[in-house]
Design a protein around this nucleic acid. Structure first.
Lengths: 226, 226
DNA sequence: ACCCCTTTTTGAACGCGTTTAAAAAATACG
DNA sequence: CGTATTTTTTAAACGCGTTCAAAAAGGGGT
């Protein structure tokens, strides 16, 4: 216990020093300009030592994605506690994440380039990122299950996963969004979640159920992970 | 005229030699292993000379995307001539493209990594790729306008652009598809176009029109290009 | 204090995409 | 034909992410 803690202490500290240096350089100069040599230097290390702590440069930036997920949990939970309408809950879950990720907007583009390489370990669909994905889907499930909206039975179970993929698409849009503070994405979230909730409402009508269930079935069969 | 033709002849030939060498190496060894030095050597050039003809390595691979678009035009037009149902027409336009692109499946992933870098000139939403994008949208417009289906008036005009974005998403799915010959993507095209056509049919019902028009309005306001 | 084993760091190198100044080849023109 | 201009090629270099064998540092057991 104490042994292990002591054992790992050095590594954890160095790791944190690298992360601090990286973030500073990323924010000041962007991902490309923040070379591993500069990061190493600012951390008081040689490049080789840096690679002892992080497998690749991309793994450094992936850490900030994980961190943004962790950081959004508190405001996200607060939203869930204060709202019952599905629309507000889902909008809240997504917007709180975008909020905490805002400082990383520029550098996240670099991560996206990695994420969009099919088969890459850091892709959002990969095995390596499974835990984070499933945590996120669980949170969305809380958002769905705790809502006051009436959701068609055949859909409710699968909705969280669909919303997760939807969230990924929103994040992609956000990365491409060049408006100040990415405010256009915020509006898109409002408008598109509104549309999703409307579709769910319509799905409660007897004639429409088959359409929504077809959509859910399509997702279930073709979802790009697992 | 003749002068200009003669003028460009050398460059065009060399360009083609580079493309031939690139394709050979891409297919044999993949994008990463096909280094610019090897491409140059196989073309009988030095790396510097290769860069005289192609701005970056990515521009070489972008050429194959352009070519796949050109190559799919003939079978695509044949499909349009032989089918009137919207579903068949749209499915045909997308599947013919996937068909001709099949040999480039592996190497297209590298292009996608570029395409998914926000702001990159070779992104599908960029100014530099505008011509190709607009050509493709025009073709999809032919597919829509020549169909026998009754399409709600407020939607028909915008449908081609929406279908183009849909096609982009299909291509992304195709890139991630690891099934043999990407046959899963083919099924996805069938199933999802079916769903789109169903939605259009439902949209003709008076109560549903507002929903579809909302969807179209959303796209129009938030489309990620122009 | 010593040895042993693991963790961490070093320094040099590799191969990559790309750039560049200068040379060479091709072409245009009087 | 000879000269001026443009197009193409060369050879060398740059900085990058990354790797690796060897050295150093750290820590436990005797």
């Amino acid at each position: 216990m104490t042994m292990n803690a002591t054992k790992n202490q050095k590594a954890a500290e160095t790791r944190q020093r690298i992360l601090d240096a990286s973030l500073k350089l990323f924010l000041e100069t962007g991902y490309e300009q923040a070379t591993m040599r500069k990061i190493a230097q600012l951390s008081g290390l040689t490049p080789g030592a840096t690679y002892y702590h992080f497998k690749t440069k991309e793994h450094i930036i992936f850490h900030f994605y994980e961190k943004s997920y962790q950081d959004h949990l508190e405001p996200a939970r607060a939203t869930l506690n204060n709202n019952k309408a599905l629309k507000t809950r889902i909008t809240g879950l997504i917007k709180t994440h975008l909020d905490v990720a805002r400082p990383y907007h520029q550098i996240s583009k670099a991560l996206f380039r990695v994420a969009s390489t099919p088969g890459h370990p850091l892709s959002p669909f990969s095995e390596e990122t499974r835990e984070l994905r499933e945590e996120n889907i669980s949170l969305l499930r809380e958002g769905v299950n705790g809502s006051s909206d009436r959701i068609p039975s055949g859909i409710k179970d699968k909705l969280p996963e669909i919303l997760w993929l939807f969230k990924i698409l929103i994040i992609i849009y956000w990365l491409f969004d060049t408006t100040p503070d990415q405010e256009k994405t915020d509006r898109l979230v409002d408008r598109s979640v509104d549309l999703i909730v409307r579709l769910l409402a319509i799905s409660n009508l007897p004639g429409m159920k088959s359409f929504s269930e077809r959509l859910v079935g399509l997702f279930e069969e073709f979802k790009p992970y697992q």
